[in-house]
Structure formats: structure tokens, C-alpha cells
């Protein structure tokens, strides 16, 4: 019993350790940028100097000059102050914008994860898969930069099915945003998955399972899925990056006050601390996603556990 528990828990702890190391290395990179790039880190006192309490903080040591303060800044994710929002800390702004975007991004990622597996499964089982694949191949040729504006144009401008601008109180707005975000990434993921299913079909173990008289569904889900899980993991993580890039385009076109629009604004205002803050957000988001997807697949496929 104990050995079973330890074998189940070990990969989890291994991955957690790897995640923590990667997270710390990411923080080191961010703080190295602060240290070496002039103007990348703006401490509180730079702004307090203009007010009456300047004397009270004049003796405060600079960033990185005291080990204690540096460590405190490091672990409290203190990225300093933004240039253009003088009363706000970078981490507060970033977190506020991110929590806005996460409302629909989390749903989109979950839908992408489950539905791409399900739809690809149904396409592989379908007799008309050639037509489906042609459709997805055509869809994949259209860049997100063109697809997202076209969809917004038709749904909101031409047919007025959804509001012209994003309305946080409207459920249809949320559904529309998720739909627009997912069209291209889901098409790509399904296309890749269907091709992968087909390549796996010619393997000996599949033919053997078929010869034993097992049903197609059982072969696909019980035998083949475990083996293509590793490829799916790679595809999924690449596609999620595309989804994030699509989010920038969507937020800037549909006026959603999330982190995509926030990042664009910070770039146009040349607000370096805020840009670095957003970069930290995206990287940590991706690392967390990578970690959670790896854990899910590690328990699905024992082969991955052994390779770790």
C-alpha cells in the first residue's frame, strides 16, 4: 500500500520540484532585467520624493543593495511601480487585468483541452473525415490576424448578433469571446490530433487488438490514447501559446480590458516595468499550465511516469 502511494506521489513531487526551480529561474531572469536595464525598476521612493513625506523615506536603501530587501522584493513579487499609473504597483495592475482575462481564458483552455480530444475522436470514427479534414486544413491557412477581425465583423457589425463592444454583464459576449478565441487553435489541434490518431492506427499493437476482436472505441480510447497522450501534450501547449497571441488581437479589437489590451497599452506607453510584469504573468501562466497538463498525463500514461 505504502509503495503504491509513494509510486503515485513521487512523480507529483518531482514535477513540483521542477516547477519551483523553473519559477525561481524565471524570477531571477526578471530581477536581472531590473538590475541591468536602467529604468526597468521604479521603487516607491522615486514618486514619494515629490510629496511631503519625502524625508521619511530618504534613507531607504536602493533596490538590491540590501540582501534582506532584495529577497523580500523577490518573494513578494515586488516589480516596482508603473510609469503611467503612479499610485499603483505593477503586480497589482497586472493581477487586476489578468483576473479579468482569466474569466474567459480559463474556460477557453478547458474547452480546448476536452473538446479537441472529443471532436478529434468523433472525426476519426466518422466516415466523412476527409471533408472534415479539408475544412480544418482550409481553416488553418487563415491567420488569426485576419480570422478574428472577420468573425467580429460578421457577428457584431454585419448581423448584430453580439454587442459592438465587449459587455461584461452580457453572457453572450463571454460566449462569443470564447468562440472567437477557440476557432483557430481548436481547428489546428483537432487537425494535428486526427493525423496523429491515423499514424498510430498502423502500429502493430493496434492491429493485434483489432485481431482480438476489441471494439473500435475501446482500441481508440484505452489503447491508442495513452500512447498519443505525449504528442497531445506537446501540441496542446504549443496551441495554448497561439491562444494567448489570439487574445492580444481579440482584446485590442473588441475592447476587452484584460491583460492583452493592458500589455498593448504598456507597450505603446513604453512602460517597461509593466511590460516586464506582463511577461512574468504570461511565463508563469504557461509554466503552471505545463505543470498541470504534465501531471494529468503522467497519471494517464505510466510510460511518461517512468521516463520522468
Amino acid at each position: 500500500m505504502l509503495s503504491l502511494l509513494s509510486s503515485a506521489a513521487k512523480p507529483f513531487f518531482d514535477l513540483t520540484f521542477k516547477f519551483l526551480i523553473n519559477f525561481h529561474l524565471l524570477l531571477i531572469i526578471i530581477f536581472t532585467i531590473f538590475y541591468f536595464v536602467p529604468g526597468a525598476y521604479i521603487d516607491d521612493e522615486h514618486f514619494v520624493e515629490n510629496t511631503s513625506v519625502a524625508g521619511a523615506v530618504a534613507d531607504k536603501p536602493d533596490f538590491f543593495f540590501s540582501v534582506k530587501d532584495s529577497l523580500k522584493a523577490f518573494y513578494s513579487l515586488d516589480f516596482g511601480m508603473a510609469y503611467h499609473n503612479r499610485n499603483s504597483k505593477v503586480i497589482d495592475i497586472v493581477w487586476k487585468k489578468a483576473s479579468y482575462s482569466f474569466r474567459y481564458l480559463s474556460t477557453s483552455i478547458l474547452v480546448l483541452f476536452f473538446f479537441s480530444i472529443l471532436i478529434s475522436f468523433f472525426i476519426v470514427r466518422s466516415k466523412n473525415r476527409r471533408h472534415f479534414l479539408l475544412f480544418f486544413r482550409g481553416l488553418n491557412q487563415i491567420p488569426q490576424l485576419v480570422l478574428i477581425p472577420v468573425v467580429i465583423y460578421f457577428f457584431s457589425y454585419a448581423f448584430s448578433i453580439v454587442p459592438l463592444r465587449f459587455d461584461p454583464n452580457s453572457r453572450s459576449s463571454y460566449c462569443f469571446v470564447i468562440f472567437v478565441l477557440l476557432i483557430k487553435p481548436m481547428g489546428q489541434l483537432i487537425h494535428l490530433m486526427v493525423e496523429r490518431w491515423h499514424r498510430e492506427k498502423s502500429e502493430t499493437y493496434v492491429q493485434f487488438a483489432r485481431a482480438k476482436g476489441l471494439s473500435n472505441n475501446r482500441i481508440l480510447f484505452v489503447h491508442m490514447f495513452k500512447n498519443i497522450a505525449n504528442s497531445f501534450l506537446g501540441y496542446f501547449l504549443t496551441i495554448v501559446l497561439q491562444l494567448l497571441t489570439g487574445n492580444f488581437i481579440l482584446e485590442s479589437l473588441y475592447s476587452i480590458p484584460g491583460f492583452g489590451l493592458g500589455f498593448m497599452d504598456s507597450v505603446s506607453q513604453r512602460d517597461l516595468p509593466l511590460v516586464v510584469g506582463y511577461l512574468f504573468l504570461f511565463s508563469s501562466l504557461y509554466l503552471t499550465l505545463h505543470f498541470s497538463v504534465q501531471i494529468v498525463f503522467m497519471y494517464l500514461n505510466p510510460k511518461l511516469r517512468e521516463s520522468e
Binding site: 500589455f263 516586464v276 511577461l279 511565463s283
Partner: peptide, 16 residues
Amino acid sequence: VFDSIPNFLLVALFSI
């Protein structure tokens, strides 16, 4: 680390 950041963001950071 490079893989964990979308290419577009990295280019944005470098260009700044």
C-alpha cells in the same frame, strides 16, 4: 524559458 513565453511577447520585450 524561451519556449514558455509566446514568441510575439519575447520579440516585443527585445524590441523595447
